[in-house]
Amino acid sequence: MKLVIKMLVTLTIVGVISGALLSEISGWAEPKIEAHRKAETEKAIFEVQPSAESYEVVDGIDFECYKVFDKNKEKTGYALTYSGSGFQGKIRLMIGMDNSLEKVLGLKVLEQVETPGLGTKITEDDFTNQFKGLSAVPGIDWVKGASPSKPNEIQAITGATISSKAVVSIMNDGIEKLRAVDGGKK
């Protein structure tokens, strides 16, 4: 009996001390971590919407989306984050769209776990720049091993066709979803 009490007391003391210490540290770290996260989102928004100066969160939808404004407070379009499955895991994208939702303004890969050296090329400028000014009507399409011939086509990366395809289909899904929401609002 005495031993049981001793065991309980020891574990309680260790737990209380560790809990107190952690809450102290986390109180210091949380705001900083939050700030990093916000800065990252902001940076991505301004990257996919080159003329953007400010943004506001679109409320009441089940995915992350921002309305973006230029320096004259004129709405330039949307930036939405959307994710889906890639070759090996989740790919999360920040997609910049114009007001009509017919043209892509920019793309940034926020998260991915593709094969190093192959699938990870989707994060490189050579790939993402293809999306600048790309037409999204009727949807984005991809070609392999040749230069794109239509305004809504991009060239898939050699050796990373599956990752390239995944990016395109995530974008199509996201744009489709935004269109449904936006169409309802208008």
């Binding site: 260790v14 737990g15 560790s18 952690l22 770290a29 900083k32 971590i33 990093h36």
Partner: peptide
Amino acid sequence: LIIATFVTIVDLVMKAQFP
């Protein structure tokens, strides 16, 4: 418990200082 406490400290500090 003790190890986990220190690991959590490291994790939080790294997230805050070296994202």
